[in-house]
Computed example of a mutant assay.
Amino acid sequence: MSTPSSLVEIRNLSVDFESNRHFTRALHGIDLTLSRGEALGIVGESGCGKSITWMAALGLLGRNARVSGSVTLGGREILGTDDATLSCVRGGRIAMIFQDPSSSLNPLHKIGWQITEALRLHQGMWGQAARKEAERLIDRVGIANARQRLGEYPHEFSGGMNQRVMIAMALAGNPDLLVADEPTTALDATIQAQILDLLDDIRRERGMALVLISHDLGMVAEMTERVAVMYCGRIVEDSPTSDLFANPAHPYTRGLIAALPRIDGPRQRLMAIPGTVPPPSALPPGCTFSPRCMLADEDCLQCVPPMRSASADDRHVAACVHLGAVSSFVPKTSAVVQASAAGVA
Rank of each mutant, 00 (worst) to 15 (best):
C48D: 01
A130K: 08
A180E: 06
P305I: 12
P279A: 10
D243P: 01
I30P: 12
S158H: 05
S19P: 00
D201F: 14
Q194I: 02
T276Q: 10
M294L: 14
Y252Q: 05
K332W: 02
I235E: 10
N247V: 15
P4E: 11
G233E: 10
C88K: 14
P291M: 02
M169Y: 01
A186P: 03
V8I: 15
L270D: 11
P274I: 15
N64K: 04
E38K: 03
A118P: 04
C232Y: 14
D313W: 12
V336R: 09
L212C: 04
P279M: 07
L40W: 01
M219Q: 12
V211N: 07
R254E: 05
L61Y: 05
D243A: 08
D197L: 11
I115E: 01
P240E: 11
S46G: 07
I235Y: 01
A310W: 02
A172L: 00
V337K: 03
I115M: 02
V8S: 09
F98D: 05
G151T: 12
S214K: 03
F23T: 12
A189V: 14
A134R: 04
C320I: 11
L119M: 06
P285G: 02
W113T: 13
S158D: 05
M166E: 04
L256N: 05
P248V: 05
E152M: 13
I42W: 01
R120F: 07
A39N: 11
V67Q: 08
P251H: 01
L13K: 00
S103D: 09
R226N: 08
S2V: 15
L108P: 06
E45P: 06
G142V: 02
T81D: 11
Q99C: 13
M96S: 04
L187W: 09
L73G: 09
D200F: 14
A193F: 00
P107F: 08
T185R: 00
I30C: 04
L40R: 01
P291S: 05
A310R: 03
R203E: 00
I273S: 00
V227S: 09
I202D: 07
S46D: 00
S309H: 04
V321A: 09
I78W: 00
T333K: 05
L58F: 14
G41V: 08
V326Q: 02
L187M: 07
P280Q: 15
E77F: 13
S51A: 07
G151S: 13
R63A: 15
Q99T: 10
E133H: 09
L177F: 12
